[in-house]
């Protein structure tokens, strides 16, 4: 496959950036998107040029590190798929592909396609945990949890914190991320104890980090590689109202 890429190049934070054209020739359809970029980078290195900087880690779709907006869609055209699991067979030879970094006030571009997503970590630090007494391992099933609740909690816990929801949101809101974390803990008895405080401090942290608010476009759900549903945002809203009562 031969492709034409337009990649966002930016030498550092607060530096001006622009799209640059690259040719990716002889790409195998079995390569992942990141492997295709590896090939392009190898060519750039051989030519003595600066390779394209992009985030990646596990390359098996679970770490939430890869973060590229491909032709206007975070993680690219295939649903419920991270960039690393997006394979080139979903493109045609001769295609033109635009690759941009996540865009949001809270995600400043560090270099090329890499953005600083530590704002999500700070939302987690604010309240995305349960306080437990350490000590001996509790007996299994000492705390009974209805199957439906456990399932819903695990669905929310699938969030890998990649930030695609923020990247896709016209408001740069981190509501789907925050809602997934709030719901994941609020659905379990261990998390109920701090539920009221948690929803307040986490949404407060979200606002302080410069994320926008949710106006229910549901773009986040459409691009989420883990299929986190916006029903969790309704759950967050319920938790918020409960916390005020």
């Amino acid at each position: 496959m031969d492709l034409t890429l337009y990649v966002w190049r930016q030498s550092g934070p607060d530096k001006p950036g622009r799209l640059e054209e690259y040719k990716a020739n002889g790409i195998s359809p079995d390569m992942s998107f990141l492997e295709m970029l590896d090939v392009v980078n190898q060519d750039l290195i051989r030519a003595g040029e600066e390779p394209i900087a992009f985030d990646h880690d596990c390359r098996e779709g679970i770490c939430g590190t890869c973060s590229q907006v491909i032709n206007g869609i975070p993680h690219g055209p295939v649903e419920k798929t991270t960039v690393c699991q997006l394979h080139m067979r979903h493109f045609k030879s001769g295609d033109t592909i635009y690759i941009e970094p996540w865009r949001a006030r809270a995600f400043p571009v560090m270099k090329d396609l890499i953005v600083d997503r530590s704002a999500l970590d700070r939302i987690m630090q604010a309240g995305g945990y349960v306080s437990v007494h350490t000590g001996g391992v509790p007996d299994a099933n000492a705390v009974l949890i209805p199957k439906d609740d456990a399932d819903a909690s695990m669905d929310a816990a699938e969030c890998i914190g990649c930030g695609a929801c923020v990247a896709a949101c016209p408001n740069g809101s981190a509501m789907l991320f925050t809602a997934a974390k709030v719901a994941h803990l609020a659905k379990l008895p261990q998390g109920r104890v701090e539920a009221a405080r948690r929803v307040c401090v986490m949404t407060e942290a979200m606002m302080q980090e410069g994320f926008g608010s949710c106006s229910n476009h549901y773009e986040c759900q459409a691009v989420c590689p883990k299929g986190i549903k916006v029903q969790f945002i309704a759950k967050l809203n319920r938790e918020f109202m409960k916390s005020r009562m």
């Binding site: 337009y6 966002w8 799209l19 907006v69 032709n71 206007g72 869609i73 635009y98 941009e100 865009r103 949001a104 006030r105 809270a106 896709a168 949101c169 016209p170 408001n171 740069g172 809101s173 410069g210 994320f211 926008g212 476009h217 549901y218 773009e219 759900q221 459409a222 691009v223």
Partner: peptide, 15 residues
């Protein structure tokens, strides 16, 4: 203000 820079390729799937 939370989304100061637009994408060069702007695409919506759901909104």
């Amino acid at each position: 203000d939370a989304k100061p820079e637009p994408y060069v390729v702007e695409k919506y799937k759901q909104s």
